[in-house]
Design a binder for these strands. Structure first.
Lengths: 201, 201, 201, 201
DNA sequence: CTCTAATCGAGACGGTACGTCGCGTCTTACG
DNA sequence: CGTAAGACGCGACGTACCGTCTCGATTAGAG
């Protein structure tokens, strides 16, 4: 369940207002809203984006916005969840099948293929929401994974892992493209995460 | 120089607006504003705090607020800078004189002595500003310190160190008090930071 | 087009701000604002009336005021234009059909029937705006009327006529009611205007 | 005693605050304030002139302003009274000694010699205060002069006379200089005033 | 020629009103 | 008769200017 980046309050996503995504039109507007938000995030930080702006850009009426999301934070959460899910779905199987290194490489590859998008998501005022969501998913994943070491409380381990990965990606995206190769970043990331949070006692 | 947590834009701290702190009255109001903000941060997240509220509580007129700070973010930055400075001033000498472990212990001790304050600062919506400022100071400290290893870009190392420390403190403060002793946390912190960002090649 | 009494600057009446009067709600609030202003003008001079006061009295939200008028002067101009138009519409046909004397009588009769209103308008700080508007309309009327004499520049003639009429009405309204009859005032007015500005060479 | 143009309320000129003009310094600042106001009136309407601006321009401290005048309206009244007095002192003797025509000519000559000043005073938002003061003085003059005709109430006659003269001067100053000669204006003024307000029954 | 008091500079502050912006609700007019 | 258009309530923001209030420094002008 997505959480708001600022207030840390969950929204009622099951309210009577929400348009059912079953309707083709509803689905279309929903997608339009998300894409417009992503587009705007590439231009300005999230807090400077206004609902009216999203609507104007996507050609959707202002009031209609609220039939889909109670406010713009909810839309952001939705988008964040979607992107994080996609990322995790991609890296998780690899992590299980192979090892962490390969998994990190897959992550970096994926991010690199969507540089603009992820730059917007991580460095554009939406970072907090992204990390929040990332954390949430990570907790779920961790719940079905045996803990690796005992000196580090599990919850703190998750938090730190996510922080390290997100920080690295965020920093990488802020560098000149091609300043660091995917492999280099994956290696750094692996070393950071493994050595700190997953080293046995 | 403090940065705003949301817009990442610096404020003009030298503008003609700022009341000169030479006047005793100005100093008094300035302090009142800071303390009031800290007090409020213990009750609600930063974004829910309004300038009007700070003023009402501190008995300072609304318009006067803006003679000291261009907006509430600036006040937060100011407070953050102050607190971070105090923290660093405390731990830095130790770090130089002794070792990291002792330094971390001092940090934890200090935080523990001001649990409420730091809980507000880190977990109350002001966290981003705090980390931003923490990062800034760390960069300054790092600038006069030789880098420890070569596989980790310096800048990224700093970012990750700050993240790990802040995450740990933040998580610790969210736990039941006395669930973890100061020594335990210092040890964890030491292990996290050293092993990840300061381990030689 | 109404002009502001103080700055002599026209306002953008076609801006995107103005609420379209097509909506029944918009029309209702617009009327409410005007009537409230008129009501307040009977109690205190215009400069002492605040937008907040108009809003509080009319039960209309402060921000909504500015969706109708850029500031209170604009509202006054609007009201002034309305009243002047009403007055002129009443007296103009008579002036054309009959003579000036009858026309002045009609004017005085009308004013007398709305003593409170016109006292507020002329003697309550709104006088300047009223005269400005009066002048504007008079110029339009004069444009389609042949000049009566040659020794007096047309424009100056208009200005003086309006001044004399407004001064007389204003003075009359300041007297005890029934101190001067409608006929007396009309006669004085007639004599003042005719003898001064309309006397042939 | 000068009256405020807007509120029609007299100010307490005998307050304990007022700087005594006996001190050379006080006299100097008082003059500086007046001249600065006049200078500013040539550039922008009175309402757009701020006390701070007057002070900045005249090099006098903001707080000092209020040691001379309770507010900027009072300063304007003071200036207006001064100018009107000067004007009347000039024309009154002539009016008594010779006739009205000559008197009007003297008035026009004087105004013409100070075109910029009087343009500012009459057409720059200070007009209302000027007319108010003009009226006041005229009333005093009229009090010692026998009424000329019976059909026109004395008070109204004074009001109209002042209006006609002020309107004419104001209009004249708005024309291209040298569009109308002093004699022409004096003649028009004479004809306007005499024929309307001073014609016997 | 001094000394005492009035005047001034400096500027923080409380106060009132302004006009703006964005959110989210809810009425209306129109197709 | 439903839906988009948009008016509205709401609450916070930041600004502008007012007039007041200490202080301390200076400068008359009277003794």
């Amino acid at each position: 369940m997505p959480m708001n980046e600022l207030t840390n309050q969950r929204y009622d996503t099951s309210g009577p207002r929400r348009s059912s995504d079953k309707d083709a039109r509803a689905a279309r507007t929903s997608i339009a809203l998300q894409e417009t938000l992503l587009g705007l995030l590439e231009q300005k930080p999230f807090e400077q984006i206004t609902v009216r702006e999203i609507c104007a850009r996507s050609g959707i009426h202002y009031a209609t916005f609220f039939r889909h999301h109670p406010n713009k934070e909810a839309l952001l959460d939705h988008v964040a969840a979607e992107q994080i899910d996609r990322l995790v779905e991609l890296t998780l199987p690899i992590m299980h099948a192979l090892d962490d290194q390969t998994s990190f490489r897959a992550l970096c590859e994926y991010v690199d293929e969507h540089r603009i998008l992820w730059t917007a998501l991580l460095n554009g005022g939406a970072g907090a929401a992204m990390r929040e969501e990332w954390l949430r998913v990570s907790r779920e994943v961790a719940a079905i994974t045996p803990p690796r070491n005992s000196w580090l409380p599990v919850e703190l381990g998750i938090i730190c892992s996510v922080s390290l990965i997100a920080d690295t990606v965020s920093w990488w995206l802020a560098q000149k493209p091609s300043a660091f190769s995917i492999d280099e970043i994956a290696a750094i990331m692996h070393r950071l995460v493994i050595s700190s949070t997953m080293r046995p006692d």
